[in-house]
């Protein structure tokens, strides 16, 4: 079994997000990039499948700040091969990202055949589409998203995938392999890996590079950002200020006035 995991870096929203001059994009120089949260879950789901069934895991990422750390961490966790696509224009969109992934999968030896291609179902910057369905369509593979669990059938020709629906309902799907799954959450939280193990991976693991090809002209309808600004949420809420005991006292008064306890 070969599992290909597609990884994309995304801005860390715990940090302040700055808008670039011109007001139409984030300031890339001020961003701290981390592995997209659902991609981290996709990697974890691949690792769980490897533990259960035995598998070779290839982690394929798009070049971005901190991507080497993410790939070495993936290797330290158990990925057998790590590769990044390099040479893209900065600020590529999600549909372009999907195309870069698809090109690398088609061109780089050993990425296909893959029995399963796992990636996060959605990233916080997926403004113009989602990676997983586009890659699936390009490879003519079936696609299922919002997946929170995967179990292989004994034949290894199919998998049972759990998809989330609203109101806590889930659906169990039988998916013929090879397939692309958009992972919402792995069955377990992404594992912690000690820094020492990551450092060891940095010394022993080589990140392979795949040169991005030029995207075909006119292939992608552009989406034009007119303006981007920080959400200023505090305007809605009445903010209570002071030390914890002070604001707690204020809040209690408000709740009591409303008869809430």
């Amino acid at each position: 079994m070969h599992i290909l995991v597609l990884l994309k870096m995304a801005p860390d929203v715990v940090e302040d997000l700055e808008i670039a001059p011109g007001g139409k994009a984030l300031d890339l120089d001020c961003l701290r990039m981390i592995l997209s949260e659902s991609d981290d879950h996709a990697l974890e789901q691949a690792l769980l499948l490897k533990e259960r069934h035995g598998a070779k895991i290839t982690a394929l990422a798009l070049d971005a700040p901190e991507v080497d750390d993410a790939l070495f961490t993936a290797a330290a966790k158990g990925a057998d091969r790590v590769m990044k696509v390099v040479g893209m224009d900065p600020g590529f969109t999600t549909r372009e990202a999907a195309r870069y992934f698809s090109q690398a999968i088609a061109e780089e030896p050993g990425l296909l055949p893959a029995d399963l291609i796992l990636t996060g179902v959605q990233a916080i910057d997926d403004l113009d589409g989602l990676v997983a369905p586009i890659v699936a369509d390009g490879l003519r593979m079936p696609y299922l998203g919002i997946v929170t669990g995967v179990a292989l059938e004994a034949s290894a020709q199919a998998a049972r995938a759990i998809k989330e629906y609203p109101a806590g309902v889930r659906g169990e799907f039988l998916v013929q392999l090879p397939a692309v799954l958009g992972i919402q959450a792995a069955e377990k939280p992404p594992r912690y890996v000690p820094v020492a193990k990551v450092r060891a991976a940095m010394k022993s693991v080589k990140i392979e590079c795949s040169q991005a090809l030029t995207l075909a002209d006119g292939g992608l309808p552009l989406v034009g950002v007119v303006e981007m600004k920080r959400n200023e949420p505090a305007g809605h809420a009445e903010m209570l200020e002071g030390k914890p005991d002070q604001v707690s006292g204020q809040l209690c008064g408000i709740l009591a006035e409303r008869g809430l306890f």
Partner: peptide, 29 residues
């Protein structure tokens, strides 16, 4: 985080550590 989007739907907001605020709020209640 004073920029947390939750404040855009909240009626009242407190910028502070939730872990520190919980016992204070419990005591006040």
């Amino acid at each position: 985080d004073p920029q947390a989007p939750i404040f855009s739907v909240a009626h009242y907001g407190i910028v502070g550590d939730a872990v520190e605020t919980m016992p204070a709020l419990t005591a006040a209640v």
